[in-house]
């Protein structure tokens, strides 16, 4: 599905570089990369999403070099890829329901399907009672759950998660882990980067360590 082939990234501030990283994410796999601050975790996710260019090496999406993709192919890839950041990315002027249904609207689904899927996702993340609430009044945990619900309705082929549990409680982390397994079950390829403290809780996951930009098996 996704393959990092000797990827090297040099940031201008010298922080979070990647050195000859090679990593293969087979379809439907769950890979967890752990590393301390500045190890290059965010760079790994950004390169995977095509948000950052490699200085050398290449990123292959289904054996196609992402740097060779035209705009149409790249945005098709992005549409099929869910990206979770440390800080939830939501549209403030929309309410909870509107935020969750947005990806489906953009994909051009029918209203009935959108309503059904959005309601299911709202129930899954436990925010059914908040569906008409504005985003502004919600806490970080609730915002993150909205992001997870967005991922669920999208049914992405690839999930790139950049330590989304960073600010979350232990209960939220358990919910997040359950969410990852749910996506894995429907065939989503998952790459999660995080710090090392909670990695022991993952089962059936390929775990790698990133140390000063180098991937240690």
């Amino acid at each position: 599905m996704l393959r990092y082939d000797n990827v090297t990234v040099t940031n201008s501030n010298g922080f979070g570089n990647l050195k000859n990283v090679s990593l293969e994410l087979p379809s439907g796999s769950l890979t967890v990369v752990i590393g301390s601050s500045g190890a290059g975790k965010s760079s790994l996710i950004d390169v995977g999403a095509g948000l950052k260019k490699c200085n050398s090496g290449r990123l292959l999406v289904e054996n196609k070099d992402i740097s060779q993709m035209n705009s149409k192919s790249y945005f098709s890839f992005l549409k099929a890829t869910a990206i979770l950041k440390k800080k939830p990315r939501l549209i403030e002027r929309f309410n909870v329901y509107e935020n969750i249904r947005l990806p489906l609207l953009l994909q051009g689904h029918r209203a009935k399907y959108i309503r059904l899927e959005t309601t299911k996702a709202l129930e899954y993340v436990g925010l059914r009672h908040k569906e008409l609430s504005p985003i502004k009044g919600l806490n970080t945990s609730q915002k993150m759950r909205i992001n997870l619900a967005q991922c669920l309705v999208r049914k992405p082929r690839l999930l790139l998660a950049n330590d989304p549990t960073f600010n979350l409680s232990s209960d939220d982390f358990d919910n997040f882990r359950e969410f990852l397994y749910t996506l894995k079950d429907i065939g989503t390829t998952i790459l999660v980067v995080m710090d090392s403290s909670r990695v022991g809780k993952f089962k059936n996951a390929k775990i790698k360590t990133l140390w000063r930009g180098e991937l240690i098996p």
């Binding site: 098709s76 549409k79 099929a80 489906l104 609207l105 953009l106 994909q107 051009g108 689904h109 399907y113 049914k155 082929r157 429907i186 065939g187």
Partner: peptide, 10 residues
């Protein structure tokens, strides 16, 4: 619907 990423007429 896993691979149904339709044209974004939305």
């Amino acid at each position: 619907t896993f691979r149904s990423h339709k044209n974004p007429s939305g």
